[in-house]
Amino acid sequence: MSNLATIDKFENVQIGAAIGPEQMFLSKEQARRYARACGLDAPRFTDDEGARKEGLPGMIVPGNMSLGLLTKLVTDWIGQSGARIVRIGTTYRVLVQPDHTISLQGFVTHTYPEERACEIDLWIENEDGERMVTGTATVQFPR
């Protein structure tokens, strides 16, 4: 569980509310362990030298790991409210490399009162403020 503010019920969801930012240092060992746990035991995810042989600048973070980190940002925000993520999607714009500090951030952008749902923008930034991974999620709250 992170130190992010959480939401307790749909009635308190506000368009424009920020989720995060949450900064974290993403180590090579974390990326390597994630890759192995997912059966993605390719050099690009585990080894700088092997990644370079594939034409990459060095080890990269598996796309599913980026998706997982953004998913966790949302589930941390949902907290104990009973809400659930009904959809999440990401676009990979820039290679995410480990051994860097990344920032995870989101904004509530739209609400659907009849469905007690909201739409959230999400992204992962690098130290230069480049949005490496962007996405959106739909969260639905219980009645």
Partner: peptide, 15 residues
């Protein structure tokens, strides 16, 4: 304007 994020020095690793 975003706050400056400290840049970590990547560590070279070869497995």
């Amino acid at each position: 304007k975003r706050p400056q994020v400290r840049r970590a020095e990547p560590v070279e690793e070869s497995e």
